[in-house]
């Protein structure tokens, strides 16, 4: 099964699909830094280079602005030539993400979800899997996206999954929209259930006992959201800013105090002695808190330990680049499970194929044996494959092998 990964970033989706046994034949993204990391970890592949005019625009604006139809004219034929069986991808979700600035439907990046859809419906592979934030479902963009997919004959599975059900200790909700040509809605649901992991990992499972009992991740918002987590809990969503915010002091919130008390861990409060029991409102220096470095955050995002974040040759990505790649990536364990679900669906489908009475004349098999010198195993294979092929063309009630062959093609 050939897979094309759109908006591939550093390769989280591709990696999981590869582990599930798929062949990644193309990976596309706007960010050269991310593509370099993708290439370093998928040496067999060589991601498609960004068109030059696009690279220019990207450098100039540091952001891809006009996803005009000109892009599609360039990309659709290129991707079509790769003849993928599956198109996967997580179009940029920032316009709809609850983290950071939200432009929603009016954000120009929201056009990239539509670009994914238009490319997919034009190339028209049998399957596609799109990943995004659940908030997308409430948008006008999503309405358009699903309408386009339906118009081109895809049955849709629309499902919000939690990454901790699929091997990553993050409590991260993701929308999976999966399409299959000619299927009924919900076609992948039971297989997504089957591939759910039994064990929901916690922070400690990934970082080990050595990390200590606490994990600090500065809350995004002012207010009551805590920033301390026990390492026997799951961790909050890793975003591009997860490692930041340790230079300025942190003011403890009541929810933090509850976590600190539950592990009985001492935290140094500015201007107080070591025996002081921290209270909400106390200021602590954030410099020495157990934040987790880049490597640890990548592990929490379910990347393998040997993932190369600094490709040889070329410019090394900055720390911020890498954090953005990790934050934007589809957790590989999730994409692997999605790929496995698709595999199970296909196996189930094959088993369902009805037995068609073998309408071929017995002389055919004699001919195979005597004239073509086929052995019994090979004759049996022809019988089986012929029956399956004929099941596909059976509704057309054709009698001649010539017509059947044409219909099959």
């Amino acid at each position: 099964m050939k897979v094309v990964d759109l908006f591939c970033g550093c390769g989280g989706f591709s990696h999981g699909m590869r582990k599930a046994g798929y062949n990644i034949v193309g990976a596309f993204d706007f960010k050269p830094e991310a593509l370099a990391v993708h290439a370093a970890n998928n040496p067999a592949l060589g991601p498609s280079p960004m068109p030059k005019w696009m690279a220019h625009r990207y450098r100039k604006k540091r952001e891809f602005v006009h996803a005009d139809l000109g892009n599609l004219l360039q990309w659709v034929p290129e991707i079509s030539q790769l003849k993928p069986d599956v198109i996967v991808g997580g179009p940029p979700c920032q316009p709809f993400s609850p983290f950071g600035r939200r432009g929603g439907d009016n954000d120009e990046k929201s056009l990239l979800s539509l670009a994914f859809t238009i490319i997919t419906t034009s190339v028209h592979p049998r399957f596609f899997i799109m990943e995004n934030v659940p908030e997308l479902q409430k948008t006008e963009t999503f309405r358009k996206v699903t309408e386009l997919f339906r118009n081109s004959g895809y049955g849709l599975t629309q499902r919000v999954v939690t990454t901790s059900d699929y091997g990553s200790p993050q409590n991260r909700n993701r929308l999976i929209l999966a399409g299959c040509v000619g299927e009924t809605d919900g076609w992948l649901n039971e297989y997504l259930d089957q591939t759910r992991h039994e064990h929901k990992p916690v922070i400690r499972d990934v970082l080990g006992e050595g990390f200590g009992p606490l994990f600090f991740r500065r809350g995004h918002y002012a207010g009551q959201r805590r920033s301390f987590f026990r390492t026997d809990e799951r961790c909050p969503t890793i975003t591009s800013t997860t490692g930041r915010g340790t230079r300025s002091p942190y003011v403890l919130r009541p929810a933090d105090i509850r976590v600190l008390r539950s592990v009985g861990e001492g935290i140094t409060v500015l201007g107080k002695g070591p025996d002081y029991v921290p209270q909400a409102g106390d200021t602590i220096p954030a410099r020495n808190l157990p934040v987790g470095g880049q490597e640890e955050l990548a592990l929490l995002a379910s990347f393998p330990a040997n993932w190369k974040w600094a490709p040889e040759g070329g410019r090394a990505p900055t720390k911020a680049d890498v954090m953005q790649m990790i934050g934007n990536a589809v957790p590989p364990t999730l994409s692997e499970a999605v790929g496995e679900s698709l595999r199970l669906y296909r196996i189930g489908k094959m088993e369902e194929t009805p037995d068609v009475p073998d309408s071929i004349h017995p002389l055919f098999y004699e001919w195979l044996r005597d004239d073509k010198a086929f052995d019994e195993t090979r004759i049996e294979s022809v019988r089986r494959h012929g029956a399956r092929a004929r099941a596909l063309v059976a509704p057309r009630a054709l009698s001649m092998p010539e017509q059947e062959l044409k219909a099959f093609d």
């Binding site: 195979l368 019988r383 092929a389 001649m400 092998p401 093609d409």
Partner: peptide
């Protein structure tokens, strides 16, 4: 798999022409 199915169809066609 698809190739095997096509081959089976093709063999039947070839036989019908023989």
């Amino acid at each position: 798999d698809q190739a095997a199915m096509r081959e089976a169809m093709y063999l039947a066609y070839e036989w019908s022409q023989a």
